[in-house]
Nucleic acid binder design. Sequence first.
DNA 1: GCTTTAAAAAGTAACCT
DNA 2: AGGTTACTTTACAAAGC
Lengths: 186, 204
Amino acid sequence: MTDPADSIEIQNVVASTGIGQELDLEALAEDLPGADFNPDNFPGLVYRTQEPKAAALIFRSGKIVCTGAKSIADVHDALGIIFEKLRDLSIPVEDDPNITVQNIVSSADLGHQLNLNALAIGLGLEDVEYEPEQFPGLVYRMDEPDVVILLFGSGKIVITGGKRTDDAEGAVEEIVERIESLGLLG
Amino acid sequence: RLRKWQERIRTKDAGERNLQFALSEIDRMASALGVPRSVREVASVIYRRALKEDLIRGRSIEGVATAALYAACRQEGIPRSLDEVAEVSRVEQKEIGRTYRYISQELGLELKPVDPKQFVPRFASALGLSEETQAKATEIIDVSAEQGLLSGKSPTGFAAAAIYAASLLCNEKKTQREVADVAQVTEVTIRNRYQEQIEAMGFR
DNA sequence: GCTTTAAAAAGTAACCT
DNA sequence: AGGTTACTTTACAAAGC
């Protein structure tokens, strides 16, 4: 009996921070090798770190969004690299900028195939969005923890919208319980 | 005071004009899709409810009208695919789908997922298939859905594959291309669903 | 509302061989 | 017929249109 909670893997962490300093993105785009800056397209400058692999969106205000990291530690490491690069360019960066995790995307496997049709009705059509003509996953909005779960026929699921690592654990526990109480889990 | 009064009339007239436009669009699209009058009535009711609940703000009248018609077809058990509805609407498919999900949620329509079987009579008759073949296709859908093959699959693709399989089994063969054209799916989808369904039926 | 970034799930589609 | 690539859905921040 494998616990679905053990299958949880963080796939992406989105976080925001700021260096407390206005930036000249035109100049930064010149000085930062590999930076992408197309102000006509998007106001942020895109910078990618290789290790850990992540992408940062750097704005004129000095605010930064980091996405693509596989853990909260990776977010801190990736942003740490960026802070150092900026300091190397003589840009003053706060000592230890606040980093706020905004969203964590995780995947997991319930270990059984799911009858999404029965699940849509069982979980309650009012809380569920299941339109297989548009997308193969059933969208379930959970209140506690406050996350959105995508459930697939294979039993694989995606949990998104959480801000804490243990939101995924709580969500898996809760969804397994609800599905089991409906008698719809294997 | 006079201005205010005139403005009220103006907005009332504008609202009335918009409603008439929406209802005539529903009528036009329904005719193009060949859906019965009763469904147009249901679509009109859904549209008026959406209007009353102020769901049109930030959305186009045409988008809500199209979504209302799409919902009405489903509610009446004679669904049209989003593809088909988009063909007669000036709103793109993605937007119709989004608007449908929104009004469906807000109005609490609670429509069950589309049953592939509901496409069988229409697709099969467009292909000139017999009652026997239609019954076979329906049986294939029931059996393979019971075995869990339907989860996440497009209802039109699922129906198309079953119709293709039934046409072979009943010696009224239609090509994958012919079935794909009426169901508006690709041959690849029919092939994939067909293989699974045939296996579920215990053939092969 | 849109633009951009990242990542997973599974289905469908477009295009090429 | 197969393979690759790309798009659909969810969440979230950022600045600006």
